[in-house]
Design a protein around this nucleic acid. Structure first.
Ligand SMILES: [Mn+2]
Ligand SMILES: [Mn+2]
Ligand SMILES: [Mn+2]
Ligand SMILES: [Mn+2]
Lengths: 219, 219
DNA sequence: AAATAAATTTAGGCAAAGCTAAACCTTTGT
DNA sequence: ACAAAGGTTTAGCTTTGCCTAAATTTATTT
């Protein structure tokens, strides 16, 4: 019931990201884990024989309850390690993902819980994503995309959607990070770009592709 | 040159432990990694093709310079993680080895160095073993076994030899830990057991198998 | 020096994990 | 309703890593 390989865990996590406990097509799965179709077909069969997924041939794959529990546990580890790397070791939030991709496979319940305690039982990771708790419950995702705020409202950035390096580089250029507060000045009806004011009154524009990946709460 | 599997790294580390850069018999190697002879024979061939070891058929295996460098780097990671687990997460020194056995395979030079810095660049791990430094140098092993002290000398425990769970349990029973100071009262000429006095004057005996794994420095 | 014992390698298998090319379902468009 | 297109599975192969049994080499003993 317990011992899973790194590969297995990556497939489980991919299934969770793609569909939660819904059916996921084998092609999409293969794509997500960076493998080819036949590899995924074989992989899900191994997972099925362990009771982690249910396969409907030519239709797709679905996490079982066991699989879902495992997925959330791996995600918990991933986000706790990301938090550790940023909070304690001083990594930038844009560099921790590939490291957590390795660390999430370390097997020890005691380690996970000691780590969580050491980090003061965090509820969100450095990107603002909710950290599944030890009991399997997942805190609600917070914030809504900047587009959904009305002109003139003040807001605080609380989450960024996982995106590539370029996205983070751009965030750094603009000095945007979690916790920063802004006033939304205007939303262009031409290209949906957004004008923000910093607390110190400086004004700048955000493209739609940037702003749609930035989540905030109203103040 | 870089990417090694967990299995490969475990073989490299085993070779280092068994012989440094000397020749090691394939049977001893197999034994150390918990595999059978033929598995080791095959494994060292894979390592040889990567330039990490040199094989002399029917004679043994030897780390190359590259292999030696890798071995020390893995050992550095192992001992840094052990230090982290004890110092920061509050694990007991007897429980960290199997966890470090996993963590030592995480690949990221930046992570290792950030971790070392976070731990204030430690020179010894929780068992008193020297931590190989970033430049490959290894601090000298400290202490000598209790037998080598003369009766009446005062000493401080600075290292214990890696041993099984039972050894640590017994250390805990006797409340022996790194940094503790004792006076050596007598060494039995019958069974080489050793009588120690604690700082508060209590007296107790240590079997030879215990004391020969406990290293101390004179005060 | 020959015989025996011990260690090592070879031979032959198996499972996990990946790949390409070919065959096979499903869906879609006419 | 059917043919083309698209996605999925099957077939067949590769590498890593580990196993047992048998052959081979080296070491030890008489
Ligand atoms: Mn991963
Ligand atoms: Mn994250
Ligand atoms: Mn290991
Ligand atoms: Mn140690």
């Amino acid at each position: 019931m317990n011992n899973h390989t790194e590969s297995e865990e990556n497939y489980i996590k991919a299934l969770y990201h793609l569909g939660g406990d819904d059916v996921v097509a084998s092609g999409a799965l293969a794509n997500r884990v960076g493998a080819k179709g036949p590899s995924a077909t074989q992989a899900v069969r191994r997972l099925a024989s362990k009771g982690l997924v249910e396969v409907i041939p030519y239709k797709g794959v679905k996490l079982t309850l066991d699989g879902l529990t495992l997925a959330k546990h791996i995600l918990r580890k991933h986000r706790l390690w990301e938090t550790f790397l940023v909070e304690k070791l001083g990594f930038g939030w844009e560099e921790v993902h590939p490291l957590a991709e390795q660390l999430e496979h370390i097997q020890s319940h005691e380690l996970v819980e000691k780590l969580a305690e050491y980090l003061d039982s965090p509820v969100h990771d450095p990107h603002g994503d909710p950290i599944p708790q030890a009991d399997g419950k997942i805190p609600p995702a917070i914030g809504k995309p900047l587009q959904q705020f009305s002109e003139g409202s003040t807001l605080k950035v609380v989450r960024v959607e996982d995106a590539g390096t370029d996205f983070f580089t751009q965030l750094d250029h603009l000095e945007i990070s979690l916790g920063k507060e802004y006033t939304l000045i205007s939303i262009s009806s031409f290209d949906s770009s957004i004008q923000l004011n910093t607390e110190s009154g400086e004004s700048f524009w955000l493209s739609h592709s940037m702003s749609s990946n930035i989540y905030a709460i109203a103040l």
